[in-house]
């Protein structure tokens, strides 16, 4: 109720300002916006429309659009088992990167929140993965996964286990790529969560302490509920990032073995650009699916965030 009336008041204020705005328009505004707008149209909006156009057409051998095929490319995606596997891989990969990233990041962020000597050193050191790009991280992890000299197999050997083909075993490859991705984005998740933790007012902990809450109860009933907006933001960001993952797949597995790590984005690359395929029609349809999924995830974020995720 209160929120609604304050919103209405705010509404009148903006309306009043807009009335004033109508009287004096500054032409400079258009000049200032023009560079960005032109770049957006040329490199984002127009290409997006062209992707839609391409996805409704067939492609000749050099990739130029041929005849209008309607939704055929989309239908192919759902009916062809190999193309359908791509969607399954994409979903699995997101699950395998997002969930561990968030869980580990919460644990680490809570650890870093402890007030003990030397915590600043830990915090600085933990930022190190930021220095890695997808390419540099993947190159190092490729060596870790190496069946002969890699540390992962050395580790198994330590416990008397047989060596494993981390990237060559179809049942393991996707998880191996996911491990690399989790390591790569863990630093960012910890950083965002630490910022979220820092924003929780100290009084709330004080009040809980007076009520006799112990550390664990405080974490469960104060910290985590108040952290939900941050967690939710991270959930959306890491989901979108995992959907867009490309470099680690290209470097570690080239989508293999037997297509086991071919995700939507990697499939766009293969169909459009690899081996002289130039199947821009199918690749565009897949790119549109990616666009719609990302849009849906973001819309959900805004929808839920409006309703506030935490319970006060």
């Amino acid at each position: 109720m209160e929120a609604a009336s304050s919103e209405r008041r705010a509404g009148t204020r903006t309306a009043g300002r807009r009335l004033a705005a109508g009287r004096r328009v500054e032409p400079a505004a258009f000049l200032f916006l023009a560079p960005s707008l032109v770049l957006f149209v040329v490199f984002i909006f127009w290409p997006l429309l062209r992707t839609v156009y391409l996805s409704f057409h067939g492609s000749d051998i050099v990739g130029r659009p041929t005849i209008f095929v309607g939704l055929d490319q989309y239908q192919l995606m759902l009916s062809s088992p190999t193309v359908r596997d791509v969607l399954a891989n994409t979903f699995l990969f997101s699950l395998m990167t997002v969930v561990p990233s968030l869980v580990l990041a919460v644990v680490i962020a809570l650890l870093l929140q402890q007030r003990i000597a030397g915590i600043g050193v830990f915090r600085t050191l933990m930022a190190t993965p930021f220095a890695f790009s997808v390419a540099t991280a993947s190159v190092v992890f490729a060596i870790f996964f190496n069946p002969g000299v890699g540390v992962f197999n050395s580790f198994l050997q330590l416990f008397g286990q047989h060596p494993v083909g981390w990237l060559t075993d179809p049942s393991r490859a996707l998880a191996s790529v996911a491990v690399t991705t989790v390591w790569l984005q863990l630093g960012y998740c910890v950083l965002v969560l630490s910022a979220g933790l820092g924003a929780i007012p100290e009084e709330l902990y004080e009040a809980a302490r007076l009520d006799g809450a112990r550390a664990l109860a405080m974490t469960r009933h104060v910290t985590l509920p108040l952290l939900t907006p941050t967690l939710f933001f991270l959930l959306v960001v890491t989901t979108i990032t995992s959907l867009q993952s490309f470099g680690q797949i290209h470097i570690l597995t080239r989508g293999g073995p037997a297509g086991a790590t071919t995700t939507l984005v990697y499939s766009v690359y293969v169909n459009a650009f690899a081996f002289g395929n130039s199947n821009f029609g199918l690749a565009s349809a897949q790119a549109m699916v990616l666009f719609v999924v990302v849009l849906a995830v973001t819309t959900v974020q805004f929808g839920v965030l409006e309703r506030r995720v935490f319970y006060r």
Partner: peptide, 20 residues
Amino acid sequence: VFLATMFIPWEATIIPNYLF
């Protein structure tokens, strides 16, 4: 419109951009 550009994945426009 400016905000909308943040929600369009670059990969969704990569083919036309390459052709361009």
